[in-house]
Design a protein around this nucleic acid. Sequence first.
DNA 1: CGCAAGAATGCTGTATGCAGGATGACAGGA
DNA 2: TCCTGTCATCCTGCATACAGCATTCTTGCG
Lengths: 238, 238
Amino acid sequence: MLGGLAAERRDMDVSNEGVSVLDQMVPVSRRTLHDELVGRIRDLIIEGHLAPESRIHEGQLGQALGVSRTPLREALKFLASEGLIELVPGRGAVVRRLTPRDVRDMLDVLAALETTAARLACRRASDAEIASLRRLHDEMMGYYATRTRLEYFKRNQAFHAGLATLSGNAFLAATHEGIQSRLRRIRFVGSDAPDKWAGAVAEHEEMVQALEARDADRLAAVIARHLEATWIRVQDVM
Amino acid sequence: MLGGLAAERRDMDVSNEGVSVLDQMVPVSRRTLHDELVGRIRDLIIEGHLAPESRIHEGQLGQALGVSRTPLREALKFLASEGLIELVPGRGAVVRRLTPRDVRDMLDVLAALETTAARLACRRASDAEIASLRRLHDEMMGYYATRTRLEYFKRNQAFHAGLATLSGNAFLAATHEGIQSRLRRIRFVGSDAPDKWAGAVAEHEEMVQALEARDADRLAAVIARHLEATWIRVQDVM
DNA sequence: CGCAAGAATGCTGTATGCAGGATGACAGGA
DNA sequence: TCCTGTCATCCTGCATACAGCATTCTTGCG
């Protein structure tokens, strides 16, 4: 999902001086079957309903989803490019298993992207944008207090995505989002024990403070530490 | 093309002590129609035979390539996920145009990845690996001397890809490769005047030296400077 | 003469059919 | 008992067919 550069930028364009309403009108987003299928299958994989290493039976899955093989196959090719599945000639699509090494590598890339985003965000994010990230963080804290795992986790992901967006670099944000979605399952099962959350919450708090102070170096350092800790938290579930 | 994590790692495993030949045997690579089409269409776009903003006529292109619409459409979905084309509901595939902003954003991400790769490479690359990158650089210098543009350009790309590989992080290398291929066309037309090469060549020389000295900070700095210069070189062709 | 509504054409999106290769079972032989 | 070769079945890969929507041309009206 590295696409949609222009589309995403449009949402971030806040200044509309001298621009007609027509120009900033977003096309009605018709949910196509393609998008629907890609989303559904991606969720099936991320949520673990399609096990790693398992082959995807086109006829079966197509029937289950109520579509013919053609659009289903097209969706599978799309997901293959994202790296979620692997296309084996003559044997179809296989759900890719993330090795510990893969996860480690991806976290390193994520760290590179997030620290870069952090430095950019410290420079160019508006106070309002930073405040909205702070609100997101506070929400997350609320769910942490009540141990509401799924909602806590969602805010956590949204926080990191939001930080990437604040960089003002839409391509960076899109790339970050793609990697984060691939790591979602691993990170979710890795956050099973609420006592593991404490460290992450503290790091998030520090990140918000650094961002509010626009202290780029400190923010980058915290992020690096945060992802290193994520690696440790996640390691034993693989 | 963020896929192929495991596959790419295999190539880098050089030590084969106590390992049977069977274990390191690479499966016969059957070039599927899918791969063939993806490669061909990608090249058509990157080389400019399919103009930006232009719609891709499935019947037409299919006939030109000698395949039916089904595998062609599947290849298009694949490329859409890479971001080369955009899928417009009811109107098919459109070649995406890179705005200056897109290019700038992508170069920033490329810089983040390459500097990260550089630091890793300084730590873990073997002397032999560094030497082979030096050879690649020397080859490039040869083509620079004779102003052999295409070959020069290819070595240039290979050099950066090689640096990413030396990081030992296969995912980073794959991500880097994906971005670099999308920028290939713009960088190629941006290198039309040989007098522009001089700076790039000098920077490459400095990069090799820094890598040989395993001076991570210096290497990262040169890379950042190099990509900043790339942005300037490329700007006026857009 | 310009514009708009409608029809015709062409293209995309989806379903289905068919051929070739993969998978698994089973029998015969070492 | 285990291995190997053969056969049946199933599934994938590709082609083709058809329905519905976009686009464009044409025609009628202002």
